[in-house]
Amino acid sequence: MINFQYLRTTVVKTALGLVSKDPKATFIAGGTNLVDLMKRGVTAPEKLIDINHLPLKQIELKNNILHIGALVSNSALAENAIVAAKFPLLMLALQSGASAQLRNVATVGGNMMQRTRCGYFYDTTMPCNKREPGTGCGAIGGYNRMHAIFGTSASCIAVHPSDMCVGLAALDAQVVIAGTKGERKINFVDFHRLAGTTPEKDNNLQKGELIVRLEIPVNNLNKHIHYLKVRDRSSYAFALVSVAAALEIKDGSITNVRLAMGGVAHKPWRLTTAEAFLKGKTATPANFEEAAKLAMKDAKGFGENDFKLKLAPNSIIEALTIAKSKA
């Protein structure tokens, strides 16, 4: 077998030191994606630093900001009472992801770091710029039913597969990242990247950096919310399209709104234009339709995924309609 070193530490600083110094070293947490990638020959790290024993498993509310440790499991986060009460949108997004078994093992940080599920990325005999830059994109002109319609490039049309991240993108989360030189914070929506000409880079994490926690400011978006995931089967299927919708409605008018989509781009796709349109408007079907229409500006299909140009706006309308109806 391809031998690799396995190291474990309980100290964040030690973990950072081990990975930052070694180009062939990488962190492993739940391993639900990394192990698959290693088995399929997509990646072959020579050193795995097991971070499961780092003290990053707390969920705490401090000064009206929810702190979520990067090693909190997806199921623990979904079942957390504070999350259920204050961030039900995140709870729904989490529950839509993967399967119960995977959610028990998958971590918050790992969920953010998971790679695309594009079939060409996983089959090492096929072209894929993300796996092997310069080889071409198999999905363009090939099987692209699951692929992106926003922010695509000639080199890659893969989508980010996470549901949790769509919820986080809608909730103005921030990512706290630790490096050997200290911590830095970036907005969640700036964490993942578009493919551009460097599809091999999924996000803006630098080599040796580690996600240590998420911070989400408490908001009033805990009533009129919905996470709609449209998929080929009811569980354990990636989204054709998903929508995270949250509304704050006062006297019939929308005072605050968040919209994000999954299954449509190389990153969780925040719908800022649609949000701007809806703010201050009444929560009516006509306004939902107009918002959906605005959200679709610049969308582009690749043949097999052309249906998303209809499914996406429909899903936005449906998610907003259900969110509004929640009492």
Binding site: Y122, M126, G138, G141, G142, D232, R233, A237
Partner: peptide, 27 residues
């Protein structure tokens, strides 16, 4: 749900695993 999808340019299946070849789940 069930469909084995072949990329006819390569003659290879692109969903040859249980995550992407969908057999029904309980739900």
């Amino acid at each position: 749900t069930e469909e084995a999808i072949l990329d006819n340019r390569y003659g290879r299946y692109v969903n040859n695993n249980f995550a992407d070849y969908h057999v029904p789940v309980h739900a």
